[in-house]
């Protein structure tokens, strides 16, 4: 749940917000990630009014209110604020009419003022609202940035996800989150992974304990957040398990409704998962730059076999 107080805490400075109604509680829930200006609602036309949105009174609204008599102003604002709005914003440091204060107090709707212009205010508040309302989940796994590709390592506890990420960090790649990844969805197809605030930059290495990765390897070893691009499942070696041998059939895993390509790496002692992980990342980059290794080899093979077959046919009809 996001409240007006949360918004003020995260964005108070960015939006240059000032609370005008100190006595009113800011513990009011924001239910939709949208902001608008009331416009015609102030003139009494409430038919299409979406009251659950956030509302900003811009210069047009304030100029309109100013043109009204004090009684009309109270009536107009009372209609507007009767909808139990989360709060009301006034932009561009405009002076606030006395009637707005009295109606706001009566309806217990806090009034906040910003020194930004209305359009700037809209532009800066929108990303925050989108983030606050985007679907989120927690994934048990470790996230690393390998050559710019976000690899999410999953697999049973103790299989070596953290050790793999530590090895990657040692080789110049970056840790994003160890053990628990907070995942949020942006738009319809992008997943962003972040660490838990408390444990960020730390990882647990069995036998050693908790280690501070950025203290050990420097600032380059840690990254605040990263798009999740490939899921790498570390699995116990099992002959019966159906593991992709060609890379032609890309499997995917559903996270928050986004299908993320998934690679399963079966483990045996002595296997260098770090190098394999680097290849997974590079192969992903290669695929997205238009080169599909597995498909290319297969095309070459199919062509060769067709040529061989044609030659055989030609020679078989050669009765000299």
């Amino acid at each position: 749940m996001t409240t007006v107080a949360d918004l003020l805490e995260s964005l108070g400075d960015t939006l240059q917000l000032e609370v005008m109604t100190e006595d009113l509680s800011l513990d009011r829930e924001i239910t939709v990630p949208e902001i608008t200006s009331p416009g015609l609602v102030l003139a009494g036309f409430v038919e299409r009014f979406v009251s659950k949105r956030l509302h900003a009174l811009g210069e047009t609204e304030m100029a309109y209110l100013e043109n009204l008599s004090a009684r009309e102003r109270t009536k107009s604002l009372d209609t507007f604020l009767s909808y139990d709005l989360p709060c009301v914003f006034v932009t561009k440091d405009q002076p606030i009419p006395e009637e707005l204060f009295s109606v706001a107090r009566k309806r217990k709707v806090p009034v906040l003022r910003s020194s930004l212009s209305t359009s700037q205010f809209y532009r800066l508040i929108t990303p925050y609202l989108r983030e606050a309302f985007s679907p989120a989940t927690k994934v048990h796994g470790s996230l690393a940035d390998v050559y710019g590709v976000g690899l999410l390592f999953v697999g049973r506890s103790g299989i070596g996800k953290s050790e793999c990420v530590l090895d990657l960090v040692e080789r110049g790649h970056r840790l994003v989150a160890d053990d628990l990844v907070n995942v949020t969805r942006r738009g319809s197809g992008v997943l962003i992974g972040k660490s838990e605030e408390v444990t960020s930059r730390f990882m647990e290495i069995r036998g050693v304990g908790l280690v501070d990765v950025s203290a050990l390897f420097g600032v380059r070893a840690f990254r605040q957040q990263k798009r999740i691009e490939v899921v790498v499942e570390l699995a116990d070696w099992d002959d019966a398990r159906d593991v992709d041998r060609t890379g032609l059939n890309t499997k995917t895993r559903d996270i928050l409704g986004v299908e993320v390509p998934e690679v399963v790496i079966p483990l045996i002692p002595g296997k260098n998962i770090t190098v394999v992980s680097e290849v997974v990342a590079l192969n992903h980059l290669l695929k997205y730059s238009g080169v599909d290794s597995a498909q290319n080899l297969n095309d070459r093979l199919v062509r060769q076999m067709a040529e061989k077959r044609d030659l055989k046919k030609y020679l078989s009809e050669d009765y000299e």
């Binding site: 992709d244 041998r245 060609t246 032609l248 080899l297 297969n298 093979l301 199919v302 076999m305």
Partner: peptide
């Protein structure tokens, strides 16, 4: 028809 290409080989 396609011979032993990558998919059948796998």
């Amino acid at each position: 028809q396609m011979g032993l290409h990558a998919r059948p080989a796998a």
